[in-house]
Amino acid sequence: MERPFVEIMDVAMRYGGVEGTLALKDCSLTVGKGEFVAVVGPSGCGKSTLMRLVTGLWPMTQGNVIVAGQEVDRPLSSAGMAFQAPTLLPWRTILANVMLPLEVVEPHRRRLRSERAMYDAKARRLLAMVGLKGFEEKFPYQLSGGMQQRASLCRALIHDPALLMLDEPFGALDIFTREDLWLELQTVCQTLKPTVILVTHDLREAVFLADRVLVMSSRPGRIIAERKVPFPRPRTMEDIYKPEFQALLHDLREHISDARRAGATLEASHAA
């Protein structure tokens, strides 16, 4: 069998010394190459922490993370990331914002000057794919939150990252914009086929987008359940209302409720 692209093995993470917050414990999961995995869990269970460990942004307390067969002991060199806040640079146009990773990641960094036109066209294509055609020369403040988030997604994808990390990227958007963006993300991922880890607390989002949904326990977080999402692609908004989709949602919902109850009793026993 082919080796998974991301392997997380018995990882623990404690913030701030021996007495600090234990955010993750015995957390293990794998993600295959080109797979789209969603991690869901109650707020504060360590989802963002998991993202930081996988990308090597923070050193973990215990365990191992292997990405593309390499042990992660420093920040990865070309992972695409997007967060709840679009974090675009206000002094750059949308196009220049999207092209920022090309100025950092090799080999694009070296080639950018000589092949400017090619990269420029690529960025415009990507922007058009998420419905931002005509906004290339605008500045972030001239765009709505949803549009900024689309640009932020393009920035995460411009350099063809093998690994795409999305930390609640649609968390701040209204439901209609969010659903539009699900469809656009699905299209982009089907075209570019990156390996994706999406963190979210929206179950519908997880089931709609992912090949596999992992449920995390409350703090200290670990994976307590896993469900394959067998529905064929491309999925449409109609699919959400089908009984099998609803049944899967229901099933996952149970696990989350269990996790939250367990977390609540744990905290109560600590308080006592």
Partner: peptide, 23 residues
């Protein structure tokens, strides 16, 4: 500089000097 923005750049393999220059 926003920590998320810093993370975006660091995960791209940006060196501290890159982050200072670009952001």
């Amino acid at each position: 500089v926003e920590p998320e923005l810093r993370d975006v750049l660091r995960a791209l393999g940006a060196k501290p000097t890159d982050i200072i220059r670009k952001v």
